[in-house]
Amino acid sequence: MTGEAVLDARLCVRRGDFELDADLRVGSGQVLALLGPNGAGKSTALRALAGLEPLSGGHVRVDGRDETTTPVERRPIGVVFQDYLLFPHMSALDNVAFGPRCRGLSKAEARARAAELLDGMGLAEHARARPRQLSGGQAQRVALARALAARPRLLLLDEPMAALDAGTRVDVRAGLRRRLEEFDGATVLVTHDPLDAMVLADRIAVVEGGRIVQQGTPAKVARRPRTPYAARLVGLNLFRGTAEGTEVRLADGGRVRVHEAHRGTVLVAFPPRAVALHRERPQGSPRNVWRLRVDSVERFGDQVRVHLSGQPPLAADISPAALAELGLSPGEAVWASVKAAEADCYPA
């Protein structure tokens, strides 16, 4: 991260058995995505940043100012909520003008600023529309405009794509990305969809069980996930083990041969398409060969994904033709191989 962080927060929230403990730092113009399964605590983190959830410890600093105990309505924040929560009894324009009004602008000034923002979002002709007359994508843009209207330093987005249908997501996501790039404050985005995180964020923090288990650029998280959840999200086979040279003894049994030598606790990752399946034991170049059992077979894009159990449990992507040739059905034994060069090994 470069320069002074706009957001510098340590969030501790305890609620019953659940405990969130997360350090977040986001620089100017940066977008941090909190990626994690349901119940991981990412929405709690967002609410804590907004002041909607009381902290049991830690701090929230924005532009170096301590906002830990600032009431919600006086924090320099803007929030885009999951269902957008546009006020149903107000026009789009009044929704956007709401924040500036509350921050002391006159009605005319607030409306002028709102109109300008809506114009910038390409929504000028929908200014008078009620929220229920807007499409999902339009509503999202109004919600974004509303959140930005009071000129926040910290923008919080809670599952901004969740309310949209699959067909419109691609366009809306691209539009949102463009607008986030124009925002010079810090943005924290909560999502459970890795694609959103990859496209929208500069950095991803993977949240599981109230902790940040991995943090890095989307490319790094995608290539070298550190938990099974993250690996599954980005579609990789991931194993933890102990390396001795180019051989890794896996924690759950089995061995994997890798290309580069390591020592100590490591993670090994390789994509399902790097896995080849055979009826007969394969011979030849240095590779990993395992005798595994077919669990299930499912369609995956134009490939077929075969889930295998044994040591180690794997997912393999093969072509439908290959599947037909192999004649695999659940319960059958099969040989699986992965070239050592395809298995990425990195310290845990």
Binding site: A50, G51, L52, P71, V72, E73, R74, R75, I77, G78, V79, F81, D83, L85, F87, F98, G99, C102, R103, R146, A147, A149, A150
Partner: peptide
């Protein structure tokens, strides 16, 4: 739905508003 009230608070509205 109290979430609308939360949304309003994040926009700078005090309880009376």
């Amino acid at each position: 739905d109290r979430r609308y009230e939360e949304a309003a608070a994040t926009l700078g509205a005090g309880r009376a508003t």
